[in-house]
Protein backbone atom coordinates (compact mmCIF):
# COMPACT_ATOMS: atom_id res chain seq x y z
CA UNK A 1 0.00 0.00 0.00
CA UNK A 2 1.23 3.50 -0.85
CA UNK A 3 1.61 5.79 2.13
CA UNK A 4 1.43 9.58 1.82
CA UNK A 5 3.21 12.08 4.03
CA UNK A 6 0.61 14.74 3.35
CA UNK A 7 2.34 17.55 5.17
CA UNK A 8 5.35 17.11 2.94
CA UNK A 9 3.53 17.21 -0.39
CA UNK A 10 3.88 20.15 -2.80
CA UNK A 11 0.84 19.09 -4.91
CA UNK A 12 2.84 19.27 -8.12
CA UNK A 13 1.19 16.36 -9.95
CA UNK A 14 4.36 14.57 -11.07
CA UNK A 15 3.16 11.35 -9.45
CA UNK A 16 -0.27 11.72 -11.07
CA UNK A 17 1.32 12.02 -14.51
CA UNK A 18 3.01 8.62 -14.30
CA UNK A 19 0.34 6.61 -12.49
CA UNK A 20 -0.74 3.97 -15.02
CA UNK A 21 -4.17 3.47 -13.47
CA UNK A 22 -5.10 7.03 -12.46
CA UNK A 23 -5.19 6.12 -8.78
CA UNK A 24 -4.03 9.48 -7.40
CA UNK A 25 -6.50 12.20 -6.58
CA UNK A 26 -4.92 15.65 -6.39
CA UNK A 27 -6.47 19.02 -5.68
CA UNK A 28 -5.00 22.40 -4.87
CA UNK A 29 -3.67 21.24 -1.50
CA UNK A 30 -5.01 17.76 -1.01
CA UNK A 31 -3.66 14.41 -2.20
CA UNK A 32 -4.95 10.88 -1.74
CA UNK A 33 -4.34 7.43 -3.18
CA UNK A 34 -7.34 5.45 -4.34
CA UNK A 35 -6.18 2.17 -2.82
CA UNK A 36 -8.87 0.12 -4.55
CA UNK A 37 -7.44 1.13 -7.93
CA UNK A 38 -3.72 1.25 -7.08
CA UNK A 39 -1.66 -1.67 -8.39
CA UNK A 40 1.37 -0.96 -6.15
CA UNK A 41 3.75 -0.46 -9.04
CA UNK A 42 5.69 2.09 -6.92
CA UNK A 43 6.67 4.40 -9.78
CA UNK A 44 4.96 7.36 -8.11
CA UNK A 45 7.38 6.86 -5.20
CA UNK A 46 10.37 7.13 -7.51
CA UNK A 47 9.34 10.25 -9.41
CA UNK A 48 8.29 12.32 -6.42
CA UNK A 49 11.05 14.94 -6.09
CA UNK A 50 10.67 15.23 -2.32
CA UNK A 51 9.94 11.73 -1.03
CA UNK A 52 6.34 12.24 -0.05
CA UNK A 53 5.31 8.73 -1.01
CA UNK A 54 6.46 5.38 0.31
CA UNK A 55 5.25 1.82 0.37
CA UNK A 56 4.38 -0.06 3.52
CA UNK A 57 6.16 -3.02 1.91
CA UNK A 58 9.35 -1.06 1.24
CA UNK A 59 9.22 1.99 3.41
CA UNK A 60 12.73 3.14 2.46
CA UNK A 61 12.29 2.93 -1.29
CA UNK A 62 14.71 5.75 -2.04
CA UNK A 63 18.38 6.11 -1.23
CA UNK A 64 18.58 2.80 0.61
Amino acid sequence: MILVKENRCDFCGTCVAVCPVDAIELREADISIVHATCIDCDICIWVCPIDVLSSDQKPEAKND
Binding site: T14, A17, V18, D22, L26, W46, V47, C48
Partner: peptide, 26 residues
Protein backbone atom coordinates in the same frame (compact mmCIF):
# COMPACT_ATOMS: atom_id res chain seq x y z
CA UNK B 1 -4.79 20.57 -17.36
CA UNK B 2 -1.01 20.35 -17.47
CA UNK B 3 1.34 17.47 -16.75
CA UNK B 4 -1.28 15.49 -14.80
CA UNK B 5 -3.50 15.22 -17.87
CA UNK B 6 -6.33 13.42 -16.13
CA UNK B 7 -9.14 14.99 -18.16
CA UNK B 8 -7.92 13.20 -21.27
CA UNK B 9 -7.96 9.90 -19.40
CA UNK B 10 -11.58 10.51 -18.46
CA UNK B 11 -12.27 10.71 -22.20
CA UNK B 12 -10.50 7.41 -22.79
CA UNK B 13 -7.18 8.79 -24.07
CA UNK B 14 -4.06 7.15 -22.67
CA UNK B 15 -2.07 10.00 -21.20
CA UNK B 16 -0.04 8.26 -18.48
CA UNK B 17 3.58 9.14 -19.11
CA UNK B 18 6.52 6.73 -19.29
CA UNK B 19 9.36 7.19 -16.81
CA UNK B 20 11.84 7.84 -19.60
CA UNK B 21 9.60 10.64 -20.85
CA UNK B 22 9.38 12.60 -17.60
CA UNK B 23 11.77 14.86 -15.74
CA UNK B 24 11.20 14.89 -12.00
CA UNK B 25 11.96 18.49 -11.16
CA UNK B 26 12.67 20.70 -8.21
Amino acid sequence: DGVESRIGRMAGIRTAIKLRDLESGY
